[in-house]
Design a protein around this nucleic acid. Structure first.
Lengths: 349, 349
DNA sequence: TTGAAAGCGCTAACAA
DNA sequence: TTGTTAGCGCTTTCAA
């Protein structure tokens, strides 16, 4: 009951190559398996045949039998945050070196039982990287239960046992507090992201905690939801208040840029002189001279390296790695007196 | 510490479900095939068994036998161009609705024989979308020859027969020329991207062509290579020249932002008053009040829609679709006299 | 070192 | 409507 093999326009398979080369299919397979025993003459015959047929081994079939996929899922939510393009690029390139590719799952920020979950599992991925800041870790938990390595980026959930890699949010926010206090500010505000997300909560806590230690009043808090619009509103409400803050610490640069925008355009304030604005993430745009945002920087390269290490690191669970960063002092916030000069200063040139 | 989610550490397969449900494997398969004949009682038995085993059909195995993959390749090069996050997001979401997922291939902008080529073919993709602006179409050609649908985004190569979807570059650049001429400018310059890439060449040609039609002198040209750094240098060299241009048309917004930056910070020019700067793409940031870049906008949604249509459109080759756009007039370029008001004006609010 | 044979998990043609 | 059977293209023991 044999069908006609070649008449149809199907890609060549190992059988075709084997026949043309006059060897067995196993021999062909071995030529594509690093470290397998193949004689030089066989290899040559196979390579010649493969080239003439333009043969490429079917990776899906390979995955099926080896039960090892070369595809890693990447779940992303807020892709408009300019922090992520660099993360995606570096992840992709680093993984490519190890033979992995990223399959994109863009979560629309939907809530409820995740339809993504079924999908993700059906691909039999080699791993899953969650760079989406979803409130629920159900996807991650389900995947981990199913046995695939899961790492969350910039999202720590200590309730479940999902590995994570993230910035030193508490330390960073604490450094920002030190910096603003050294500059002589007392009345401060925090533009929050989404409450309940670790990235936001840790930064909030690091900031408020340090201020408390220094005996300063609690910062006002306005929620910006990590969006441009939300942050703009938050800043407006603060600056319109009876006693507007002298300094604004925003839970990320994306919101700090909005804050810069609003204070300048709508309130006529010059950041760095009339108001101090500090962000977190150090986006590329934050370094532009016309923006010049003081911010806490944490290297993407280290984040990516740790993420890969964490995925490859075997069955260890509940490991939460931190990538250290540093305060980048630019012009959007008042400088401390000459005595208390900040660690790093990047000037306009 | 050994983790054992189930007795066997392999995910459940259709056989397991069939056995538990007391039916055949085909019956299970049919339950996951839309429009197959399954009795209600069988379906119930299968669904119950699948749920209790947490069964998810293996998509790779399915692809193997159906010879149809649900994975579409997306090749990207300059991911730091902020035009692409939106494209990626919208592509991903639109494709997800049809059951497809994007597999990311980030090309490092390398030249030479493409190592990506083998990789791409090995995945037996359902299609390939090229959003990378590489000069060579060899990858695209090889894939198309291998029989998979290929679409190039914002990159037209009429020498090979690869389908493409792109902006109306000539018309857009022509509209920019009209606009700048109406504003009274005569001495203009074009900040080029990479010469040889259609996106650049068409914009250059549309601009220069229209100026010629209007009897104006040829624009000066300086190459910015689509990079921030390159564009900055190009602008510097022009503005330092003996007769600096009154108006700058940049081959994309990414470079126009650099131009804005340099003219303001290094030459003390106020865009819209002392110099006119116009871009192409209408990035999100271009709409920010502090940026307010006049630019030619072409909707990503239409680009994405046409791309999908082109992929699904069967074997038609050499089809080159265009997505129309419109000039968005903001503050970075001088306005034509009140009489010749531009089509659209987005004010600060 | 090589080839034969037995699957990986699934679908699809056919028969019942 | 259901089950049986024969592969999809590959790797991997196991003999030779």
């Amino acid at each position: 009951m044999k069908k006609r093999p070649t008449a149809t326009s199907r890609p060549p398979n190992s059988h075709d190559v084997a026949r043309l080369a006059g060897v067995s299919r196993s021999a062909v397979s071995r030529c594509y398996t690093p470290g397998a025993y193949v004689s030089e003459s066989t290899r040559q015959k196979v390579e010649r045949a493969a080239a003439s047929l333009k043969y490429q081994p079917n990776l899906l079939a390979k995955s099926l039998v080896t039960r090892k996929s070369s595809i890693i899922g990447l779940a992303l939510s807020d892709i408009d945050n300019q922090h992520y393009p660099a993360v995606v690029q570096q992840l992709s390139e680093a993984l490519a070196d190890s033979g992995y590719r990223l399959l994109l799952f863009i979560t629309h920020g939907r809530i409820g039982p995740d339809p993504l979950l079924d999908e993700v599992l059906r691909y039999r991925l080699a791993g899953l990287i969650l760079a989406s800041s979803s409130r629920s870790s159900s996807l991650a938990i389900a995947c981990q239960t199913a046995g695939l390595p899961v790492v969350m980026i910039n999202n720590v959930d200590t309730n479940c046992r999902i590995n994570s890699v993230s910035a030193t949010n508490v330390e960073g926010a604490s450094a920002v507090a030190d910096f603003l206090v050294a500059a002589g500010h007392r009345r401060m505000a925090f533009i929050a992201g989404i409450e309940g997300e670790s990235t936001n909560d840790e930064r909030a806590q690091g900031f408020a905690g340090r201020l408390a230690e220094l005996g300063l009043p609690e910062p006002q808090v306005a929620v910006g939801a990590f969006t441009w619009q939300g942050a703009s509103e938050a800043v407006r409400s603060l600056l319109r208040g009876r006693r507007p803050p002298e300094a604004l610490f925003c839970a990320n640069d994306h919101m700090a840029l909005a804050a810069l925008q609003v204070s300048r355009a709508e309130f006529g304030l010059q950041p760095g002189r009339d108001i101090s604005i500090v962000g977190f993430d150090d986006l590329p745009i934050s370094a532009w001279p016309s923006v010049s945002l003081t911010t806490f920087s944490h290297p993407t390269s280290a984040l990516v390296a740790e993420t890969l290490a964490s995925m490859a690191g075997g069955p260890a669970l509940d490991v939460h790695l931190r990538v250290p960063g540093e305060l980048i002092v630019r012009d959007s916030a008042r400088l401390p007196g000459t005595r208390a000069r900040s660690p790093i200063h990047r000037s306009r040139d």
